[in-house]
Simulated scan of single mutants.
Amino acid sequence: MENELLFRQAEARDLDKIVKMLADDPLGKTRENYRHPLPKQYIKAFEAIQSDPNNELMVAVLEGDIIGVLQITFTPYITHQGGWRATIEGVRTDESVRGKGIGTKMITWAIERAKTRNCHLVQLTTDKSRTDALRFYENLGFKATHEGLKLKFNRC
């Protein structure tokens, strides 16, 4: 890609595009609710993220268009001598740019961001059914060193 890829904090006006990218995925189709107007829970979540200095919802912008999104959460831990960790979640690229290196640039940017926040490690999870995503992250140096577990609650 010849043009410069920019990263910036998401703004309220970006929320529609962000949710659309999150829903444009086999798993996202089953768990997101992309419609107009957006359900209020997306707006509430966005506001909570924006008000938390340890959460950053970032968009990747190319030629004025949002083409990627990810969220980074910075968490202090007592373990590792009181170290901080960065957790990357909700990584998506627009289908128009998939396979063009945008995801690599996004994750590389997030790793550098974690370093500026003095994190001792970056962690992320991806669904086990996402074999391409697992290979992608492994190619960027991530190692499957832990087994992750989740306990889901039914929403009201």
Rank of each mutant, 00 (worst) to 15 (best):
D14I: 13
A23L: 08
F136Q: 12
D132W: 02
V19Q: 12
E89Q: 15
H36V: 15
I88V: 15
D52R: 06
T108R: 14
K20N: 09
T30F: 10
R98N: 01
F46V: 08
I111F: 03
K29P: 02
A45C: 09
R135C: 07
L57I: 02
G64W: 01
L38T: 12
E47W: 03
I49R: 14
A10C: 12
T104A: 05
R13W: 05
Q81M: 09
V91A: 04
K29F: 04
G83D: 05
V59I: 12
Q71C: 09
G82Q: 04
P39Q: 14
T116E: 13
E63T: 06
A48W: 00
G68C: 02
I78H: 00
G99E: 06
E138F: 02
L70A: 14
E47C: 07
S96Q: 11
H36G: 03
Q123W: 05
I43W: 04
T125R: 13
K29A: 15
R92D: 00
R130S: 09
K105V: 01
Y137H: 08
E47L: 13
H80P: 00
L27R: 10
L22C: 06
T108G: 08
K100R: 13
R130H: 04
I111A: 03
A133H: 03
I102Y: 07
V61N: 09
L62I: 00
N33F: 05
A110F: 01
R117P: 02
G64D: 10
K17E: 14
D25H: 15
V61T: 12
L62G: 01
V97N: 05
I78Q: 01
E138S: 13
G101C: 01
A110P: 07
Y34H: 15
T116L: 04
V122Q: 09
E11R: 15
A86L: 06
E63Y: 03
V97D: 09
T73W: 00
I102K: 07
K44P: 00
